[in-house]
Structure formats: structure tokens, C-alpha cells
Design a protein around this nucleic acid. Structure first.
Lengths: 215, 215
DNA sequence: CAAGAATGCGAGCGAAGACTCGCGTTTGTC
DNA sequence: GACAAACGCGAGTCTTCGCTCGCATTCTTG
């Protein structure tokens, strides 16, 4: 009880240390993005950051902790910036508008932080990160379900869940294509993704609720 | 000139050897499916097959060769069984029917050979397999383009390419969901995937050439 | 049945990479 | 200025894993 009140007593850091941590996380983001988590070596991260391996381990107990911290910071930033992107909306909102707004926000985030995609998509990623990923996944799904249920108040729960999974899956497929292109072509893929989602959902909305997707 | 007419002279094999090869490939499929290519150790494959590491290397020069051979056999089987699944069809065929048939065939293949998905999706996979993957990808894309152009004879090439990429992407997203479920739920996801694809393409087909003209 | 080839084994080699350790340098505090 | 704590280093340890080697066993062939 008295001992070990906290698993880890955060070591006292100097400003220099905080800077190093940020620098290391940025370097890790670069390396993870280009090679994936497993193939990324801690030495490579240290080299990218311009420090020695020993210095890296001064701030992170192991390789996994780097990815965890990176993931947590990304999650926090995402929640702060786009937390409301999937909040239930007024069902009179046109479906197209709701989908478009959500897609734009998440695409923007993922384009700004390509690590996020790399971290969340490796088939190789260790347990703790997978947990985070699953948590995010579950959050997103319930948000999407909430959004859908505002359009489809009468849908069976199982169908709602399945539709939400489909939406997230379609979004991920589109995201991959969007990230693989640049400039005008990228914008075109964003548009196609919106089309795919809108057209997928439109019939459900049209037949399942009194509100049409477009007034 | 006279020497080295063939890079590899296929060693004379006994029936036992052929059996071992099949056995090893099957074991590799299991291990690759559950852990992915990179994380799969050759010792684990040998263990799964019930042989020693030395025996494995009697038949395969290295780890990559195992995946290559496995990939080639899968490709061959796929071509033999489903080669015509994406052949251009009579444009009067209902879109729903064309999409449904193609999806059913490819879903069936991927459900029967889950390795295929695992091998083609690792971000970690070495050069030679990626080449094969890209080749398959290109083949599929041109097939889809062909199929689309039979429905959309007036579409601009760039739009056709993009739409084909979207179709393949949407299919892959659906496939992942299908593989993640079983029984009735799996069937439901197959249906949803067909819906997503059909609804995505339907407006294009219905309005003739939506990129250039409006009804 | 012999002889050679194919098959089978598993301890062990070499490289790669996660992580440590001892020691020197910088920074904050009194 | 003095002391401690935080920072920084990079050669070195330890483990994992792809792969090899020497030798035993089983086939095939004459």
C-alpha cells in the first residue's frame, strides 16, 4: 500500500531532456513511417535524431515505449483537434455534408501525421500498441454508430454495427489510396472516397428514416 | 556460354521430396498466416512441418524462396480457377450481377487461402514478392478497367484508372472484414461489400458517362 | 547387394539488433 | 565554487534467427 504508490515515479527532467524526447519522437516518426515498426531499429532512430543509442535509452525503457508514447501523443492531438468530427449531428443535415466533413477532418489529420497510418497498420505491431489501436477502433466505431443511428433510428443494432465496420473499412481503403497520391490526384481520391461512402449509405438513409439525405 | 544455360538445374527429386515440399509449403502457409512473413522464423516453419531446419534448407535455398514458391502456386491456382472472373462482359449484363459474380469468386479464393491475404499485405515483405504482388495488382487493375470500360465506353482514361483503384481498394477493405468474421455474419459482410461496390459504380453506369455528360 | 544420390538431422556459426554499463560532461541548487 | 543529479556517449553483451555442416539414414539403380 505505502510502497510503490505509483508504478513509475517520473524522473525529474531538465528542459534539455524534454527537448530530446520530442526530438527522438520526431525521429521515430520518420523511421516508423519509412520502414514500419518492426523493421525500425532503435539505433536507426537514435541516428536519425543525431544522438547515441545510450541517450535514447535514457528516456525510453525500450523500443515499444517509443511507439506507445508516440501513439498516445497522436491520439491526444487527434482528440483535441477533431474530437467532435463524429459527434451525432442533426438528422436533417444532408448525409453528404456529414460524410464530407468527417472525411475531410480525418484525411487532413492522417496526411499531416503519416506515422499514424504506419503505426496502426503493421501486422507486426506488439501487444500494447494493438490495445491502443483497438481502443481507438472501438471509439471510432461507436462514434460512427452514434452518427448512423441519428440517421437510422430504427435500424437493428447488429446492422448498425456492421454498417459502422463497413464505413470504417471503406474509409481506411480510401485513406490508403489518398496517401499514395499527391496534389490534384489526391484530391480526386478524396472526392471518390466521399462518393463511395455517401452512395453506400444513401439508400439506407433514404429507405430507413423519414429524412432524405438531400433535401 | 555453354555453362550455366539454366540458373538452376532442378535437382532430381524423389517422391518423398515432393511430399516434403508440399508439407513445408503448407506449414509455411499456416505460420505466415498467423504471424506474417517477417515474424515467421524458418525454424518455426520447420517445426510446424515436423522436420529439422536442415531438412527445410534441403528444399529451399532461403526463407524468401519459400514465400515465392507459395505465392507462385497460389497465383497459378487462382489463374486456373478464376482467370475469367474479371473478363469484360456484355454491357447489358446488370452491374449488380457482374459485381456479385466477381466478388463471390475472389472472396471464395481468399477464404480458402488466407495466406494469400497475409502474404500480399505485409509492409515488411521483401523485394521479389512485392514484384509478384505488383504484377498481380496491375493485372487485376487492367482487368477491372476493361470491365469498367465495357460499362463506361466514354470515360476518360485517368478516371477509369482511378475508379479501378477505388474498386480494388474497396474490395480489399471488404475482404478484410469478411475474413474477420464467420458463418452468417461473414455472408452478411459479403453482401455489404457487394452493395458498397454496386452503389459506388451504379451512378456512373446509370448516367452513361458521368464524368463528361449529364443526362 | 553394393554404390551413389537423395533425404534427414540438429548443434552451431555469423550477423543483426535490442539493450546495458562505466565513465565523462552539463546543468541546477546551495 | 561544490555537489548531485540529469544528460550523453559508444563499445560491448545477450539473444534471436537465418542458414550451414558433417554425418547418419533411406531410397534408386545396375
Amino acid at each position: 500500500m505505502s510502497a510503490n504508490q505509483e508504478k513509475e515515479q517520473p524522473r525529474r527532467r531538465q528542459a534539455r531532456g524534454e527537448r530530446r524526447i520530442a526530438q527522438l519522437l520526431e525521429a521515430a516518426a520518420v523511421v516508423f513511417t519509412s520502414t514500419g515498426y518492426t523493421a525500425a531499429s532503435t539505433n536507426a532512430i537514435a541516428r536519425e535524431a543525431g544522438v547515441s543509442p545510450g541517450t535514447l535509452y535514457q528516456f525510453f525503457p525500450n523500443k515499444e515505449a517509443i511507439a506507445i508514447e508516440l501513439g498516445e501523443r497522436l491520439m491526444r492531438e487527434m482528440r483535441e483537434a477533431y474530437g467532435e468530427a463524429l459527434a451525432p449531428v442533426d438528422p436533417t443535415t444532408p448525409l453528404e455534408e456529414a460524410v464530407g466533413a468527417a472525411v475531410d477532418r480525418f484525411i487532413a489529420f492522417n496526411c499531416e501525421h503519416p506515422v499514424f497510418f504506419a503505426l496502426m497498420h503493421g501486422p507486426d505491431i506488439p501487444g500494447r500498441i494493438t490495445e491502443e489501436h483497438d481502443a481507438l477502433h472501438a471509439t471510432l466505431l461507436s462514434r460512427i454508430e452514434g452518427l448512423l443511428s441519428s440517421f437510422l433510428p430504427d435500424a437493428a443494432p447488429a446492422d448498425l454495427v456492421r454498417t459502422a465496420h463497413m464505413c470504417l473499412g471503406l474509409y481506411k481503403a480510401g485513406l490508403e489510396l489518398v496517401l499514395a497520391h499527391e496534389g490534384a490526384e489526391r484530391d480526386a481520391y478524396v472526392q471518390e472516397l466521399k462518393h463511395a461512402l455517401t452512395r453506400y449509405l444513401d439508400p439506407l438513409v433514404a429507405t430507413g428514416s423519414p429524412w432524405r439525405s438531400t433535401p
